[in-house]
């Protein structure tokens, strides 16, 4: 293939500068996005339609940005797409495979396409990736016989089969059951030890413990950049719990309050919520808000609490 299949030991793995992308009918998907992605798992959070998938496709050389530049390991994704592709493993938001092909056949072709010429080496990688993704038992099963979760895992497997130094995963847990999600997060955390992962999601929990850094993309712009702790800190002092008699519990607890969760405790309901202004009477502030609450607080502060909440609910 003629390209080094490793990333530089230091410095940004992905350098995004001033990327703007406009679709056909003038729809602006990305608007001046600049981002540097270092080693480890980098999370890209944002509600649906924020432009995450567009950015992923640009990074993966599938789309050409209308403006700006993206470099992967120093290679420009437009001019040196071939070099970039040889470094990538990509799991798109919507993934499946040819229904009549068996799992290992799909992986074999993907590995070969990525330049794994040696059949034996390919076999070893396939076995490894089948093991890592828990698909070993269904290796000879046709794709049409796989469950949705298995197909998703196959997606991860194909992205990993050639052992790429850079993994780009777009909304990887959509449609997965909680157990599969958990498993997936663990996998990503593990993989992030040895490679750079750019993970885009609208589900905050997907970032998991392995996420070193993240960015929030909203309406085509990067609106937040920091660590998960930084994002969680956005909710500091604004998340509270309060217990209400069941008959007083209402959908809307008042202006400036976004309910995060409700737990029924006998005749009472324990409500966890976010206050965009002052805490209501009886509220017990939470000392350590979660990342989700940080994201919600951040989005709420931007007047986008509904978008954030809707996707959390949908997930």
């Amino acid at each position: 293939m003629g390209h080094e299949r490793s990333l530089p030991p230091s410095g940004p793995r992905i350098q995004i500068e001033g990327v703007r992308h406009v679709y056909g009918r003038g729809v602006v998907a990305l608007d001046g996005v600049s981002l540097a992605v270092e080693a480890g798992l980098f999370g890209l959070l944002g509600p649906n339609g924020a432009g995450k998938s567009t950015l992923m496709r640009i990074v993966c050389t599938i789309l050409v940005p209308s403006e700006g530049s993206v470099r992967v390991a120093g290679h420009d994704v437009v001019r040196e797409c071939h070099a970039v592709r040889s470094l990538l493993g990509y799991l798109p938001q919507e993934f499946s495979a040819w229904r009549s092909q068996r799992v290992e056949e799909v992986l074999d072709l993907c590995a070969a396409l990525s330049g794994l010429r040696d059949r034996k080496a390919r076999r070893q990688r396939i076995d490894w990736v089948l093991g890592r993704t828990g698909l070993a038992a269904v290796a000879d099963r046709k794709v049409k016989a796989l469950s949705g979760g298995m197909v998703r895992r196959l997606g991860v497997a194909q992205a990993l089969v050639h052992d790429p130094p850079l993994l780009v995963v777009d909304e990887p847990t959509v449609g997965l059951d909680p157990q599969e999600r958990l498993r997936f997060r663990q996998l990503m955390t593990g993989l992030a030890q040895e490679r750079t992962i750019l993970l885009s999601t609208h589900i905050v929990a997907d970032l998991g413990a392995g996420c070193a850094e993240l960015a929030v993309l909203d309406r085509g712009k990067i609106v937040f950049r920091g660590t998960p702790a930084d994002l969680a800190a956005q909710a500091q002092g604004r998340v509270f719990e309060m217990t209400l008699p069941a008959h007083e519990d209402r959908e809307d607890l008042g202006e400036g309050i976004e309910v995060i969760s409700r737990v029924r405790e006998g005749a009472a309901v324990r409500v966890r919520a976010l206050a965009t202004s002052a805490l209501p009477p009886g509220a017990r502030p939470i000392e350590e808000p979660t990342l989700e609450e940080g994201y919600l607080a951040f989005m709420a502060a931007r007047g986008r609490a509904e978008a954030a909440l809707a996707e959390e609910a949908a997930s």
């Binding site: 293939m1 050389t61 990538l88 799909v106 396409l113 990525s114 194909q158 780009v168």
Partner: peptide, 11 residues
């Protein structure tokens, strides 16, 4: 088959 992008992103 929703694998086009996966193939497109390969070298």
């Amino acid at each position: 088959a929703r694998i086009a992008e996966v193939l497109d992103a390969r070298p």
